[in-house]
Design a binder for these strands. Sequence first.
DNA 1: TGACATT
Length: 473
Amino acid sequence: MASVTAENGFSTADSSGRMNGLNSAIPMKDHDAIKLFIGQIPRNLDEKDLKPLFEEFGKIYELTVLKDRFTGMHKGCAFLTYCARESALKAQSALHEQKTLPGMNRPIQVKPADSEGRGEDRKLFVGMLGKQQSEEDVRRLFESFGQIEECTVLRGPDGASCAFVKFSSHAEAQAAINSLHGGQTMPGASSSLVVKFADTDKERTLRRMHQMAGQLGIFSPMTIQFGAYGAYTHAQILQQQQAALMAATQGSYLNPMAAIAAAQMQQMAAFNVNGLVAAPMTPSSGTSTPPGISATAVPSIAAPIGVNGFSALPPQSNGQPASEPIYTNGIHPYPAQSPTVADPLQQAYAGVQHYAAAYPAAYAPISQAFPQQPAIIPQQQREGPEGCNLFIYHLPQEFGDAELMQMFLPFGNVISAKVFVDRATNQSKCFGFVSFDNPSSAQAAIQAMNGFQIGMKRLKVQLKRPKDANRPY
DNA sequence: TGACATT
């Protein structure tokens, strides 16, 4: 009887969003209470299951598991507000990334919800970190500029690659930018540090996407999605953008491949923009972008991608391309993993901003790896060994060899990337070839990029047909 | 829809 009552109490709390159960009078919360985002929660845990876990740090004011509006499906994350700010801080430090709940393969996430930050310009994106940098290193780097409320380093198998640092004020963040952006090169990084405001504001992102879309005629904001991992419907995206954004920005882990791909797409969009438009996507640094994306752009493009650690790395994932000499980017196929809570669309958005933003800076230093002949690459199409050559269809019209190469660099050493062009019109035929130096890179690329949606189309990425198979005559 | 290293 008693337990039933308790259950009912929670159910009530559930629908009202409040955890002030039957006998507890706790309607008050601190004015500076922090709403926490809780990520990586097993879907079988409901409010009542979660409550005990969090109560230990203080009285809970509100605990809401995020659910799909239509299906009611548990989204694997929740919002939690303690009555006391202090409790939230305690919970965060005690739990965040500190334990992994049963059935999860990533540690629990406990961080201030993004709604708390108000999306103000106090959050920085930090690119060009070295491989070694830990969150602590990043904190140290930034701490002199103000109070760091949040610091997240996104890293992949190889180490750190970029980070978010949220200050308590815009001014602090700005100061950090002023002092740190472009000012030093982290050990193991190929370019100087990139420090810019993170675009947390969804609308700004959308605006930019719209801008780009208008200018390019592609990449409309709603069209970058992942087919290959498409567990997300458009409706879901729209309804739960908020939650998903949080999930994505709160350190949830995404499929690294998808994330990389997203960043790549963004990057390419940026490149295209460069050719056409002054620089809608280049925020802080005034670096002028090269006029075109012809063959001469290849080395430059290759550099940011292959050389630096973060180029292919969208901010909201832990995916990470490595940093090494140009065509040995050390990136290795991440095994395709099942997607987690975050929304690919969000990744894509975020990827755009950060990637594009970091791009100008990434531009400057060209590899030390090819001192004499900077970075130039495989200009003639070369086939790799059997099983290493991909046929890619449904490329955007705007894509040239460079873009194609960029898109596939994260998966391995690209020997060659060739978009077919109609000789008469000089227009892309929307298909091309990419060759890797080993089959597993090719497979990784297929895994990640086949089905990648651009605009209304999805990339088709397959092994190229062997020679003899396509010679009917 | 289309389609596999071209001029």
